[in-house]
Design a protein around this nucleic acid. Structure first.
Lengths: 133, 133, 133, 133
DNA sequence: GTGGTCTAGACCACA
DNA sequence: GTGGTCTAGACCACG
């Protein structure tokens, strides 16, 4: 159970989404996608806060709420780690797609409001998707 | 340019979305969808506020911000109306696609964190895009 | 004393400046510059209002205030005309330059806030000035 | 990034210019002139409101609009600060000149209505421009 | 009649 | 502590 890299994480201070919530969503996705596996250690509150230039309380709040959800578990004196198999089984593709649905709906809404053609939008999306891979 | 009906509008006070923002989104959509055409009058601040049981300032804030965006136009002493073609030079397709880029990048990021395959994601996106059209 | 042409006048509804005041300033300038000479007839309230798509009351207010200032004079049943020599003598160049000073100061202020070099600004100004002549 | 002093700010309640707009203009000028540098903190809404004996909402309105313009940046729970270089890509000279064009066109129009010679006008403009620098 | 500004005072979410 | 939202109610300029 290797410690997870700091480079997995990022937040956008400009977004209307609260910072602690951005973090929570992100960790949930990383766990669902398997990039954070059960037993993996998470970065310490202090390290992650420094790396993202956040207030440590913000990171702590995200960790705390995810612990309540059962996604993470606190091991006294050792930091947080991803909850084991008894917490939640890894999600299959269909379930992970469902997690993606909200943002796709929002993007589709914006595209329609911009009166954009489906083909152009899909093409741009594919291009963005692949270039950063 | 008939006055637009009060019945076009509604807000949900329970939503986390601020009331003035709900109104803005709604008006933008009505304009984009053609239910409010350039030159149409909007309900007066007071009428709309009363109809939605809102404070007039809340409506006024929405109107004011939409004026700054170029969606609406003030006619002094006469009320607001939907901005005509001269209001916005009408962005071309490429420019509008650029406006969409940020949310697509965010969606792509989330999809990658979920370890989802590009094909599945694009398919879901297309389906969402087209079903609501 | 020919009737003055409707084409001399214009207003910008988008400006923060009240419409009646825009009209007043404009007429004062046209009189100061000699394009409206003492004895010249002004367009009727109705004609001018229609030509500028203004409320006739707005035009009437401008005319009324200029009458109080002595710039215009009302001739019963015949409309307004530019006040004669006894009203105000034509302004010399220095005086007319003074009337221009406020907007030049405002333009200079904006240019400085934009950190623009005096040479570039003057060049653009000259170009604009001459192309529309 | 030191907190900016309260003593930098002032408003005149007697002016026809709205208070929030006076504040906006002042902050824009302070930023343009370098007295407020990117990264500097602004006084808190409450502090500035008390110092100017304004309602906090008035200050908040000014801050909010400047944020929309990209001049200021919100740091949640920490207050506002002057937007950094990444906020605005810093317009080049040509683009900034374009922002100046509307007022120069208006000034040229007024000058023509006053039947003023281009040389006199440019000379006065240059004089005004340079004396206040 | 229209919208715009301002105040006072309350409540909320975020860090 | 920070800013954001909303209300109630007042006053103003404009048309």
């Amino acid at each position: 159970m290797p410690p997870s890299s700091l480079t997995l994480f990022s937040v956008s201070p400009g977004s209307p989404e609260p910072l602690y919530r951005q973090l929570m969503d992100q960790i949930r996705r990383l766990v669902a996608g398997g990039q954070l596996a059960p037993g993996d250690d998470l970065p310490s509150v202090r390290d992650l806060a420094q790396s993202l230039t956040l207030n440590p309380m913000t990171v702590s709040k995200a960790y705390g709420l995810l612990e309540m959800e059962g996604v993470l578990q606190r091991r006294r004196g050792l930091g947080m780690q991803v909850a084991g198999a008894q917490g939640k089984p890894a999600l299959d593709v269909a379930a992970r797609l469902e997690l993606l649905r909200p943002i796709l709906e929002r993007a589709a809404l914006e595209a329609r409001q911009l009166e954009l053609d489906s083909n152009f939008v899909l093409e741009l999306f594919q291009q963005i998707f692949e270039e950063k891979t």
